[in-house]
Design a protein around this nucleic acid. Sequence first.
RNA 1: GCCUCGGUGGCGCAGUGGCUAGCGCAGCUGAUUUGUAAUCAGCCGGUCGUCGGUUCGAAUCCGACCCGAGGCUCCA
Length: 585
Amino acid sequence: MPKDFNQLNFKEKQIYLDKLRHSSAHVLAEAVIKLFPKAKLTIGPPIEDGFYYDFDVQNAFTPKDLKKIEQEMRRIINQDTDFIEREVTRDEAMLSVKDNQFKIEILESIPKNEKITLCSHSNGNFEDLCRGGHVDKTGDIKALKLMSTSGAYWRGDEKNPMLQRIYGTAWESKESLDNYLNRRQEAKKRDHRKLGRDLDLFFFDDLSPASPYFLPKGTIILNELYKYVRELYEKYDYKEVVTPQIFDTELWKLSGHYSNYSENMYFVKQDEKEHGVKPMNCPAAAMLYKSKSHSYRDLPLRLADFGRLHRYERSGVTHGLTRVRTFTQDDAHIFCTVNQIGIEIKSFLDMLSESYKTFGFNEFRLALSTRPEKKVGDDKIWDNAESILKEVLDKFSSDFTIEDGEGAFYGPKIDVFVPDAIGREWQLGTIQLDFSLPDKFDLEYTSQDGTRTNCVVIHRAMLGSMERFLGVLIEHLSADFPLWLTPVQSIIIPITDKHNEYCNLINVKLKNAGIRSEIDKSNERMNAKIRQAQLKKIPYMIIIGDKELENQTISIRSRTQKNSDVISIIDFIINIKEEIKLRTL
RNA sequence: GCCUCGGUGGCGCAGUGGCUAGCGCAGCUGAUUUGUAAUCAGCCGGUCGUCGGUUCGAAUCCGACCCGAGGCUCCA
């Protein structure tokens, strides 16, 4: 560690850690070569919190190998030799990697005018083609741990050979490493898959892989989410519709999904005809729009559809609630004129940030994706659309990224990303312009001058997949749901069973007030009941004993506050209803 | 899809060729009637992911398949 590491600012620390991790990757490479002389080196960059190195080897590394490799790395680090970079000619570099097709490929991809450097440590015993950027000595790697192995395709392309990757983490001090490992432990506790089971929210089963079953408690949360979105729809002037689930393949041929998306679709045969289960709502929305003729006066028309979607996802990519094969979205399609695009997008982003704030997602990332190579519509339309999106984004947020060429073939889009507990980012909201759908489905309106004009379609989802949103939300809140969302809002705990009757009375009052309340009449001591309630993350515990019965009061213990308040049932109901209504976080 | 690891009662785990496969939690029954995070006791529950093979004998070894976990363009 540089003496003044703690004096460095955030950016400088990052730069130092990158060097440290990149250096660690070199040490890893040396250790692997020493233990597995036939291994071929490929690339070994620093990543967030660590580094990896991809090797071309016969057999995959086992956990035992990992231990041995780590030991060898320790030895190299203890030797505390200097990292040395030297510039070489292209020919010299080529000679040094002549047996390694991967390095040759890398070398060939380096622009002609760029310098070529080799880096070494261990007194020159190990040398690797490398752009540079190391710590001074191997001994500067103060804390290190190999984390895992995995297969990884060369350059990430599954057509390429698969390499074996080793992930590691490296830090400037032992404390930082411990800190990091602790953080991972904590994040694991927030894993929505675990919490979902523990709190009886949902489960999965082999007979319908990657398809969640929502238990009553999970369903309450989902329904509260729908309810909230519907309230916003009211406010922002959307109309909700319900559309079919399964369509004659004709529709998917018309929409283009049959040729572009069929590998992600489920098909069923009935009456000698092929039908596709919908993976998206848009064709149905288009049919709905077409069911009557429209005037410019009808626009913008915002049609919301919570339709259930099915998408076949490859077996290796599904993940808890965040990547499933069947889900619903708070999906809507906005049919509008070209001139209305800007204002519609602005209004949507307003609604989106209003809702994200309600959930405590104060930091989300916006990404604008622009025209890809394969696209419909001429450049003029795209120029216009992209500049509208940029303009809205500029006004809306100082901080968004532009992903060139990442747009859908039918139009540019803005995606909203939110990180989960372990730092993985998930796309939640999205807003996409579509120049293709109106054309394919003849979505027209009669304009002021009586001519028929194609409208513009905007696809948009705010929370995105409701299932994914719930998954990310569970991790974000550690399942400490705000009162309005939580399945059981209060639990009444009688101290002995002679208090049961009074508890029944309170429960009826709470239920009449629309509060989701339960009584714990189990044959347990109060302490155990409190523990249960805490573990189930129930916001309010109502403790009832002799005192409460006598004074006709209740004792409140909240999940965050041990000390209980003794208040009247009326006051409690007033407070709790206010908290629900305001959707207090 | 591909690579590695894994799959034992509802959940979390132990058990690596040999007696009726264990433990904790949960569930059920009984006793206890207790003031802010676990009362005690008893009972129920498993063809060890599925199918096939090796073996006198398989949860344990081998193969296939299913499911899950961590990864699979953060570039010398």
